Simulated assay, not measured.
Amino acid sequence: MLRTEVRPEQARTIINYVRSPDLPFDRSLNPYRGCEHGCIYCFARPTHAYMGLSPGLDFETKLTARRNAPEVLARELSAKRYSVAPLAIGTNTDPYQPVERDEGVMRACLEVLRDFRHPVAIVTKGTLIERDLDILAPMAAEGLLRVGISVTSLDPDLSRRMEPRCPAPARRLATIRALVGAAIPVRVMASPLVPALTDPELEHILEAGADAGATSASYIMLRLPREVADLWQTWLEEHYPDRAKRVMGHVRDMHGGEVYSAKWFHRMKGEGVYAELIAQRFRRVTRALGLDEAQPALRCDLFRVPPREGDQLKLF
């Protein structure tokens, strides 16, 4: 059984500003470095190499908890130069991975965002998000929150092999129901979609998400940057040797003969005949299911810096 090591980090800054033109947000926050879920395809694995750790087993077992993140976040949001815009959480590592149960960094950050009435978009595979409905539901009611739940496969065996410490697919669908029941807008995410392995499930995943109450949908094709390519291909040969050649053939077809291309507006969906066939299938099923509408825009006009103890309150 794998043992998880958690090391604290004193973050100097916590809001990460991104300038990628193909992303729908310009800032993100990561409570943790590394992720216990252990998804073999995770495009964030190479970030562990920056710390002198392996993108393989170290990424899954040697985690960093940014325990002062709430304090740093409050400081950055209070800065006079700060200009509010939706903050994305979960775009790199999952904020609701198992370690959050003990560490509570994500919940503490949510409390800060709630107090500042700051808009936030969360992406997760973790069912622990249900713990925070007491914070999330009131934020959603004010138009400050939306959530994306990733459902990579409906096959519990495939999911267990590919995402060994993630909640089972049926449990994630139950989380969608719980969030929708709290009037939280939820997007079902068929991400990543793996050619010739999970892409045959695309329509079924979206149907299951719609049945659970999701009101919008998205997908991203498998991405294999840097060390992830070798890790993925080793895993694929071990678990699905009969499909490995076909899977990788489609991957290369979508990236001009390469395993991966980081080109803007290309890296997420790929190019070519196969990529277009997937896009057509997605458009057709989302129209049929009523999932083709974007999630509601988040409100930025409610933002305010809450008074601190000792501050003089305004009379008018």
Rank of each mutant, 00 (worst) to 15 (best):
W264S: 15
R67H: 12
A210T: 04
A183V: 05
Q233W: 01
L57I: 10
D157M: 09
P241K: 03
D301I: 03
G90F: 14
L144C: 11
N30M: 07
A262F: 00
A217W: 01
H255N: 15
R67V: 15
A49G: 09
D311S: 09
G310F: 00
L193I: 07
R75Q: 15
G143S: 06
E293H: 11
T198D: 01
D292L: 00
P164K: 05
R281C: 00
L154P: 03
R146K: 12
E5P: 01
R67G: 13
L113I: 03
P167F: 12
Y260S: 03
D115T: 05
E60D: 15
D230E: 11
A190Q: 00
A170G: 05
V18Y: 02
C300N: 07
R161A: 15
G52R: 10
Q233G: 01
P167L: 07
T234N: 13
T198I: 12
L53T: 03
G209S: 06
G181T: 10
G148P: 01
T91Q: 13
T198R: 00
L173S: 06
R67E: 10
T215E: 08
I220L: 14
V99C: 12
Y260M: 07
T286A: 04
F116T: 00
V84P: 07
C35I: 04
E237G: 07
L57K: 12
Y41R: 01
A212T: 14
M162Y: 15
P241I: 02
M221P: 03
L128G: 13
P8V: 12
D155A: 08
F282Q: 00
E276Y: 09
L87S: 02
D157G: 04
I220E: 12
A196M: 11
L222G: 05
L313Q: 11
P192E: 01
V194R: 02
C300S: 14
R165Q: 13
L236Y: 00
A214T: 11
I89R: 03
G38R: 05
D134S: 13
T93E: 12
V6R: 06
I176M: 04
P95V: 07
R107K: 11
E203A: 14
M162Q: 14
D311Q: 11
A174E: 13
F303G: 09
S159Y: 09
A275M: 02
L23I: 10
R146P: 00
D58L: 00
S218M: 14
V105H: 07
K80G: 03
I15S: 00
E227V: 13
R3W: 09
V123E: 07
S261Q: 09
S218W: 06
T198C: 04
E227S: 14
M162N: 15
V99W: 01
R172K: 13
V180F: 01
E130T: 15
P167E: 03
D58E: 01
R107F: 14
R19E: 12
P185D: 05
T61C: 10
V99L: 14
F265L: 10
A49W: 08
S83G: 08
L222V: 08
L29M: 08
E60N: 13
A141C: 02
P195Y: 04
R117V: 00
T91F: 13
V251C: 02
R252C: 02
L63P: 01
D134W: 12
I15R: 06
G143L: 03
E130C: 10
L145E: 05
